[in-house]
């Protein structure tokens, strides 16, 4: 436990020096999305009184909230992890002290979730100011954001420890993060897609997070019962953790 805390402290100490740029992007991007899509495109959508049942801004806001958690968590689990092994060799240095490999992994995972939580909290505040929050359950979106962050970033920790070149991260963005953001129910309901695409959306962790978050901020029912959504996200964590730990062990203990 002490080792994990020391690792977390290490990452926080560095973050204290470099936080400005990250706040800028992880905060400003969703605000721009809310303005550009929610309000301007939303104007046309709401005119037609479509199938959503709620204003378009309110519909996409919780979706963007979760895709923010996804983006922050996954990108923090890519380049910085690669850096720890290949460039700064930070992990190797940690390993020379009496901390275990699992402490190194867990401490960094905890830091990444903290980053995701900060981004989600900031965004939730902006949503509230935009008037897109309609339920007292809204604060529950915070733990859901962390859950999405864990489910998506923990397997990526393993991936980042495995790859030999940072060019491989573009693959994660192109085949994972971007398709999820576009098709996992953030901008329109997955029911509007053909069955095959819908099945893929159900597989993606983001859709489950979006359903939960929409339930929290709008007070509407989730697609499936909420424990199923939570359970599915936990499954990603349960599978991802041993994979990540194995890759870390392979890199640090051979």
């Amino acid at each position: 436990m002490g080792g994990t805390v020391a690792v977390l402290g290490h990452h926080l100490t560095i973050y204290r020096r470099v936080w400005r740029g990250s706040v800028f992007t992880s905060f400003l991007v969703p605000v721009l999305f809310l303005l550009g899509m929610g309000i301007s495109v939303g104007g046309y959508v709401d005119e037609r009184q479509g199938p959503l049942g709620v204003p378009y801004l309110d519909f996409i806001a919780p979706g963007l909230l979760m895709s923010t958690a996804l983006q922050v968590a996954v990108s923090e689990a890519m380049w910085p992890v690669f850096d720890g092994f290949a460039w700064s060799r930070r992990y190797e240095v940690m390993r020379t002290a009496p901390v275990r490999t699992r402490d190194i992994l867990l401490g960094h995972v905890a830091f990444v979730q903290l980053r995701a939580l900060i981004a989600v909290a900031g965004f939730l505040l902006v949503m509230t100011l935009f008037g897109a929050v309609h339920s007292a359950l809204a604060p529950l979106a915070l733990p859901v954001g962390v859950l999405v962050g864990c489910a998506t970033s923990i397997p990526i920790f393993g991936y980042s420890a495995h790859v030999k070149s940072e060019n491989m991260f573009a693959v994660v963005m192109r085949f994972g993060v971007i398709p999820m953001t576009l098709f996992a129910g953030v901008f329109f309901e997955v029911g509007a897609m053909p069955p095959a695409a819908r099945a893929l959306a159900y597989v993606s962790p983001l859709w489950h997070g979006v359903e939960l978050a929409r339930g929290a901020t709008l007070g509407v029912d989730t697609a499936w019962s909420w424990p199923l959504h939570v359970g599915y996200l936990l499954l990603w964590i349960a599978v991802g953790w041993p994979l990540a730990l194995r890759q870390f062990t392979r890199r640090l203990d051979t």
């Binding site: 080792g3 402290g9 100490t13 560095i14 470099v18 700064s88 240095v93 940690m94 002290a97």
Partner: peptide, 20 residues
Amino acid sequence: SLDLELTCLENLTVYARYFG
């Protein structure tokens, strides 16, 4: 393998935490 973002002192104190 130093933390280039941190100061010299911080590089040592951060590492010290690993030894409790």
